[in-house]
């Protein structure tokens, strides 16, 4: 029996240039709770590791006094993770139970997710954990309007961390939050400047889709819709009274993602699957769908309706709903309006 999970979660920390990823990481690394974590970063120097508090394992790897293992990514991410896995199996490094990858600010998160999900070696030992995205409260809204990468980073986030709220006035912060909510209606949003930020909770498994319908924003932010990359981005939710036929759902969603995967920034759902007593959580990013997970219980035992949330670019929500109905999957009502 090994000291680490069969499928070690890989958490992605992403966010646009200057959005505070490294500052957040440096803050999290001080938490002793991250002692069973391996962190893959671009440069040790950027995080400002305290050289009195670390043991150097080799050129690319150091052990912090908290027990956290820190590595720089040289070359391919997949190779770096395989090297870590191999050292762990040989007992050359502590048996870390999760990996945090800090991406570069201009990175599209999808290749990292694809690497973990599809690499023939990694997929048997690792699984994709939560995507945590930092967004700068001062410049975030402007970046979302100008930089397509920042839109993808925000849309695929499982948790959003709003940084620099202490430097922004309330109106600017609210405008950034409005823009974020148009792209990602339900991801928990933390404020780095004021929230205590529990490192373990922040990096824990991606949260299941909330069953509370309140709080969903299902319309594109109108004044953000001008730039081409933001035009026609919509987030919407479908609710199903009847249980879901898994066979039909698999056929329909794979067909949809094959043809329109690049236009579906995110799909996430909490499903009442026929024959299953407990809910099934699904998460997809563009063409990739993570292994569906079984939750222990319904968040609200009296409400077992299935919910699917889509964040799409250029797809008509009404057509998606019509397609589901035609395939035999029946949403209870039209795409949900903002609560």
């Amino acid at each position: 029996m090994s000291d680490y999970p069969d499928f070690t979660p890989v958490i992605l920390l992403t966010g646009f240039l200057g959005s505070g990823k490294t500052t957040l990481l440096a803050r999290l690394l001080k938490d002793p709770a991250l002692g069973d974590t391996a962190v893959l970063i671009n440069e040790f120097g950027e995080v400002g590791l305290d050289h009195h508090l670390l043991d150097r394992i080799d050129d690319q790897m150091v052990l912090l006094s908290s027990g956290c293992l820190c590595c720089t990514i040289r070359g391919e991410l997949a190779e770096a993770i395989k090297a870590l896995h191999s050292k762990r199996a040989r007992g050359e490094v502590p048996p870390f139970r999760r990996i945090v990858v800090e991406s570069t600010g201009l990175a599209d998160p999808l290749p990292v997710i694809a690497t973990i999900t599809a690499d023939p070696v990694l997929k048997h030992h690792f699984r994709m954990g939560a995507v945590v995205t930092t967004v700068d409260a001062v410049n975030g809204r402007d970046q979302l309007a100008r930089q397509p990468e920042s839109v993808t980073q925000a849309a695929v986030a499982d948790r959003l961390v709003l940084t620099k709220t202490d430097l922004a006035d309330t109106a600017t912060t609210d405008a950034t939050i409005d823009a974020l909510r148009a792209l990602n209606p339900d991801a928990p949003l933390h404020r780095a400047a004021t929230d205590p930020l529990d490192a373990t909770a922040l990096l824990s498994d991606r949260p299941a889709l909330t069953t509370a319908l309140e709080g969903f924003r299902c319309v594109a932010a109108p004044d953000l819709a001008a730039p081409a990359h933001l035009a026609a981005i919509a987030s919407f939710a479908l609710v199903f009274e009847a249980s879901i036929d898994w066979t039909l759902f698999g056929l329909w969603l794979t067909m949809l993602l094959n043809r329109h995967g690049s236009a579906i920034l995110r799909v996430k759902g909490l499903l009442n699957v026929e024959g299953s007593e407990t809910p099934v959580a699904i998460h997809g990013v563009q063409q990739l769908v993570h292994v569906p997970t079984h939750l222990a219980a319904w968040p609200n035992p009296d409400d077992r309706r299935s919910r699917l949330v889509f964040i799409t670019r250029g797809l008509d929500p009404a057509l998606i709903e019509r397609s589901m109905q035609a395939f035999g999957l029946k949403p209870a009502r039209a795409p949900m309006a903002a609560a």
Binding site: K123, S276, H290, T293
Partner: peptide, 16 residues
Amino acid sequence: SEHWADAHARPGAFTR
């Protein structure tokens, strides 16, 4: 190869 819709047995995963 394993596919998400197959719901293969895997720790914590939806299995059917």
